[in-house]
């Protein structure tokens, strides 16, 4: 049975999507980039970072979770929204301990790349300098909670893709953090370096050991083009 396409607009440009799609999915297919951090294609959207906030018929919604409807009017690339997005990225920076200059994720980090794309040089908020733990117990994987942005990708990937439930959030509010399915250490879980959960971290919070700095500066993921360029290039074709 052929389902009828849904037509709507993003920043005045007509987009066609299929029923059941979110704004994010339809926009990605159409080559329109909506900034995002927690969303990752093929994982259940978490809707927590709020970077992908767009205006839908005048109301703010997260593009990663909001389904498309016929005739909806979406605003995405506006000065006001970009200002809110910068504020959220700033919050994520000051909430953790992010030292890009010597972080091995530098150049491949989505948080860093998002800051550059949005034109942030330094956060405007005061640093909160939290006390966070590093878990290096596992032979192949390292957790550095200083860099975690609580996006939930590892939780969802482990649960839905790996079928393992290695990660979950504990604590509440500013005390919220990622925990592992053991009393303390990652090495006491059944995670494997080939698991999806070990591949999806947007920042340097879950990284593979012994591969850091393998790619020289200039060749890294976001050295040549800003984050989102892969999606936007679809439109130019």
């Amino acid at each position: 049975m052929e389902q009828k396409a849904i037509t709507f607009t993003i920043d005045g440009v007509e987009i066609k999507g299929s029923p059941g799609q979110t704004i994010m999915q339809a926009a990605d297919e159409a080559g329109v980039y909506i900034p995002r951090l927690c969303y990752l294609k093929d994982l259940t959207p978490h809707g927590s970072c709020r970077i992908c906030t767009v205006m839908v018929n005048g109301r703010s919604q997260a593009a990663c979770t909001q389904p498309i409807t016929e005739g909806m009017v979406v605003e995405n690339n506006t000065d006001a929204l970009d200002e809110h997005r910068r504020n959220i990225v700033d919050m994520l920076f000051v909430e953790g301990n992010h030292y890009c200059m010597f972080c091995e994720k530098s150049g491949n980090c989505e948080l860093q790349a998002m800051a550059y794309r949005l034109g942030i040089c330094a956060p405007k908020y005061p640093y909160l300098f939290p006390q966070s733990n590093v878990d290096a117990s596992h032979p192949d994987i390292l957790i550095d909670r200083n860099r975690c942005i609580l996006c939930g990708r590892c939780v969802i990937a482990s649960r839905d893709v790996d079928g393992k439930n290695v990660f979950e959030f504990v604590g509440r509010g500013p005390e919220k953090r990622i925990a592992v399915n053991a009393e303390a250490k990652l090495s006491d879980t059944d995670i494997d370096v080939t698991d999806k959960a070990a591949q999806v971290c947007p920042v340097g919070a879950i990284i593979k050991k012994r591969v850091g700095f393998a790619v020289p500066i200039g060749e890294r993921l976001y050295d040549k083009e800003p984050i989102g360029s892969d999606i936007e290039s679809k439109k130019n074709k």
Binding site: G47, S48, C49, R50, I51, N87, I88, M91, L92, V94, E95, L128, I149, L150, F169, G171, R172, G173, P174, E175, K176
Partner: peptide
């Protein structure tokens, strides 16, 4: 704050 989303948790 439950801490789920960034603006409420940090803001």
């Amino acid at each position: 704050s439950c801490g789920y989303c960034t603006p409420c948790r940090v803001g």
